[in-house]
Simulated scan of single mutants.
Amino acid sequence: MLAGAGALALAATATVTLANAHAAPAPATAKLSPAAATTLASQLKSGTAGAYYDAQAKKLVVNVVDQASAAKVRAKGAEPRMVTHTMAQLDAARQTLKAKATIPGTAWAMDPKANKVVVTSDRTVTGAKLDRLTKVAKGLGDTVELRHTNSQFRPLIAGGDAIWGSSARCSLGFNVVKGSDPYILTAGHCGNAVQEWSDQQGGQTIATTETSKFPGNDYSIAKYSGSTEHPSEVDLYNGSTQKITKAADATVGEQVKRSGSTTQVHDGTVKALNASVNYQEGTVDGLIQTDVCAEPGDSGGALFDGESALGLTSGGSGDCSQGGETFFQPVPAALQATGTQIG
């Protein structure tokens, strides 16, 4: 039984296993938010190649490929960093990977710090599949870096707070509203597996899945029934909760936390955006890649930074004993697609 009125506000996970060049510093008086730096990098797309927050130096960095773009970045209050590959070159590499190497057990994302597309294959990619992936990666030259993990990429179905169905346990991501009606926002692979949700195993229905998208995306909403409490909070598993007031886009280098019903609260860093993961069940694009650990049952759970809702736990590799990487469905995109908002 979940304890407390805030129980259903947390990130939960489901139990279904799917498996440098130097640049001048920014002016001391100028300030630019991480979101603004990312927007700036996209606006100067022909001359930039992504942005990230350097936590150690406490500065925002925008990759640039020419001095004109460097001057514009510096004027906006971020620090330019000269790199080799343009965003267009990196996007072209991603498209080649998608066309020639969409193999279950692989993932890729543009790493702005490395100025490369980092491709990872899990332990299931062997033999002819690994040979094919290696050939495609080598053909893309130094725009791509190929890595391997001994774990397996999989959705993390099992169960912040646990929500239960007859065939799966997931974690609740965020409580949201659609019009005046309250809804649960969680992972799509959870919504695909469960139609009616309860707050305890074998309990009464508290919500019914209305919309679910997976693969392609990984989000679902379930409409609350009855009078279940649905505060806009995340369970911190220490007797307290984190209030959630808004949704926000993640930034590479951002320090984040994840709450899930299997492994509770863990923290880490955003490593890449717009990641593609080729699960055995299909490909999901546009994900947030992090070094936060997660395990089966954490699916759907909340990724957040302070009062900002960032993502829903999708899947990954590794565990919270050995470490690993976890991918998240961005919350803003899920809200827009479902017509919901943070309550």
Rank of each mutant, 00 (worst) to 15 (best):
Thr251Pro: 06
Ser180Gly: 01
Thr205Pro: 00
Gly282Gln: 11
Lys72Gln: 13
Thr13Asp: 08
Asn63Met: 07
His189Tyr: 02
Gly202Thr: 06
His22Leu: 10
Ser321Leu: 04
Glu233Arg: 12
Ala35Ser: 14
Gln329Lys: 11
Pro80Ile: 01
Gly315Glu: 04
Ser232Thr: 08
Gly77Trp: 00
Val62Trp: 00
Leu310Lys: 13
Thr262Met: 02
Lys243Ile: 12
Tyr237Leu: 09
Ala11Ile: 05
Gln280His: 15
Met110Phe: 07
Ser227Ile: 02
Asp161Pro: 12
Val270Glu: 07
Tyr183Leu: 10
Gly315Asn: 07
Thr269Ser: 09
Gly311Ala: 05
Ala49Tyr: 09
Gly282Val: 12
Thr186Ile: 00
Ala41Arg: 03
Gly203Trp: 10
Ser198Asn: 07
Met87Trp: 15
Ala92Glu: 07
Phe174Gln: 09
Ser276Tyr: 03
Leu312Gly: 13
Ala333Met: 12
Ala49Thr: 06
Asn63Ser: 08
Pro332Glu: 14
Pro34Gly: 01
Gln264Arg: 11
Gly311Tyr: 06
His189Pro: 09
Gly203Val: 13
Ala37Tyr: 00
Ala30Pro: 02
Ala137Tyr: 02
Ala24Gly: 04
Ala137Gly: 06
Gln195Lys: 15
Gly282Trp: 05
Ala309Asp: 02
Glu281His: 14
Lys113Thr: 11
Leu60Gly: 13
Val177Glu: 02
Arg169Met: 06
Ala23Trp: 00
Asn115Met: 01
Thr39Phe: 00
Asn63Glu: 07
Ala57Phe: 11
Ala92Leu: 03
Ala168Glu: 11
Asp319Lys: 05
Arg132Ser: 14
Ala93Trp: 09
His85Gly: 08
Leu303Ser: 08
Glu229Thr: 13
Ser46Ala: 13
Val277Pro: 13
Gly202Tyr: 00
Pro296Leu: 06
Gly297Val: 07
Trp197Thr: 12
Thr313Gln: 09
Trp108Asn: 06
Ala109Pro: 07
Lys271Gly: 08
Val119Glu: 03
Gly179Leu: 03
Ala35Met: 02
Ser167Pro: 00
Ala158Lys: 10
Phe174Lys: 10
Lys271Leu: 14
Val256Tyr: 04
Ala333Asp: 15
Gln200Asn: 13
Thr209Ile: 04
Pro215Asn: 03
Cys170Pro: 03
Thr205Glu: 13
Val64Leu: 11
Thr86Ser: 14
Lys113Arg: 08
Thr205Trp: 11
Ala37Val: 02
Gly203Pro: 08
Leu172Asp: 15
Asn192Val: 11
Val118Thr: 07
Ser308Trp: 02
Pro34Leu: 04
Gly127Phe: 04
Leu236His: 10
Lys223Arg: 13
Gly253Val: 04
Ala70Asn: 08
Ala26Thr: 02
Thr106Glu: 06
Lys98Gly: 08
Tyr52Ser: 14
Ser220Asn: 10
